[in-house]
Structures are given as C-alpha cells and as structure tokens.
Amino acid sequence: MGSESYTDRELMVTAAASEIEDGDTAFVGMRLPLIAFQVAVSTHAPNAMAVYESGVVRDAPAEGFIHTMCDLPNLNRAVATTDMIDIMSRLQRGEVDVGFLGGAEIDRYGNLNTTWVEAGDRDIRLTGSGGACDIACMADRTVLLMPHEPRRFAEEVTYATSPGYATDGSGRGNHPAPGGGPSALVTSKAAFGFDDAGELYLRSVHPGVEVADVTDDFPWQLNTAEDVGAGSVTTTPEPTPEELELVRTFDPDGFWT
C-alpha cells in the first residue's frame, strides 16, 4: 500500500480514468465513470470530451457532486444539452472512442449481462441495458468496471445484454457489431486486457493482491499477460495524491467510492 490509504473503488476510478486518452470522446454512464471522466479531464486528458445518453456533452468536471448524469451540476455550463438521438447518432457514426460499461456477469470474451441472472433455483431480474448495449455494439473500445466477486465471472452469461467478442475466438472479425469491442476490465482486485482472440487475460493486480488470488476466482483457466505474450503481470498503479484529492473533490462523501 502507498503512504496514503484509499478504497478499492477509488483505485477503480483512477484506473478507469487512465483508460481515457487525451482527445478522446468518452461515452459516460452511471456510477463510477461519472467520477472517472472528471478525474481524467482534470489530469492527463484535458482535451477529452464526455457525452451522456441523456443529451449532455461536457468538457470539464461538474462543480458539485453528481448522483446522475442529469444532476444540475452536470447540466450547468455544459458544452451542450442536446438529446439522445444526437448522442447515439455520434456513437453509431463511429465517433465515440471509448465507452464505459458495468455488469452483473461477464464471460471470458467480455460479454456482459445486466438483464437476468440465475441464483440457485431463482431467476433474478436486473435493471436492463439502458444505453449499455448500444455502447458495447458501437464504441471504438469499451472499458468494463465491476466489483471483484467470483459469482460475476461465468463461462457463459445467462443473457448477453452487451456484446463483447465472439465466443469462438474470432474477436470482432466476424462479429455483427460494428464497434471495436472491450479493451479493458477493471475490478476491485485487478485490471485485465483482451487478447487478439478477444479472450480476457490478467494484465495487473492491484497493490497487495496476489496473481493466484485473482485467477482462482475464475471458473476457467484465466490467461495472464505472460500466457498471451503481453509482457508480465504488473501492479496496477496506485492513485497519485493529486488523483485521490480529485476523486474526493468530485465525490466528497465517498458515496460512489
């Protein structure tokens, strides 16, 4: 651990922020990405732009805590407050570089489920897609965020709400969705990439986490960076003091983090 302590979710936010490149148009949804975009645009990505499916376009953090993309601080002094057809059309034209997604379940090819899960003999109805399916289908790349819980890692998701890569290892080559597919998964224990076949592999473990702590949680033999020729498994960078201060400015009571 670093000199300053931080929560798992604070690290997830800064790891997610690092997935936004300067100049990106980022499609931002609910929860942690609301904070991650604000961190990114305040640090390494000052020329990033955020688009939100409700119709909000922003180039700067909100001056106030936000529960949702439509909270008034997110509308105040926005670049534009437009509508969904406008935002989704930008996505469909291929103008969104990176989109953020969450899920209750993920499979080894990055397919996400937010619709139905099975728990014992009971089927549990979840909230549904929202804009997640659209982002998964059409963004150039997607970054997936979820708590690190073994029940979320499934050989096959009950329902593929938001498509990742083809389950035959052909990536997005023959996949019907026009976008590029997932590029990273960040959990509360580790960060992952996707190899050329579209399969998930372990890229880095968060400070204090062992590789086996992560691989044991998967119902399949999880590849690591070594296995796919992507160097070695590293340690996820801790939030810098500047990043932590920003996270706590944007989420002052730790509601999301």
Binding site: D134, C137, A160, A177
Partner: peptide, 28 residues
Amino acid sequence: SNFSIALALQAGSMGVPYLPTKSLLGSD
C-alpha cells in the same frame, strides 16, 4: 436498448413504419 426505444419513437414521429440501426447486433 436506449437507442432502440429512441428509434422506435422517432419512426413513429416521422410517420414511417421502422428505422434501421447498427445497434443490437450480437446482443440477446
């Protein structure tokens, strides 16, 4: 998805029977 409900209503508002999209492909 958000876009499919938007397009369904957009088609209704335009007086056309449907609108095409590249979304939903590969989704359950």
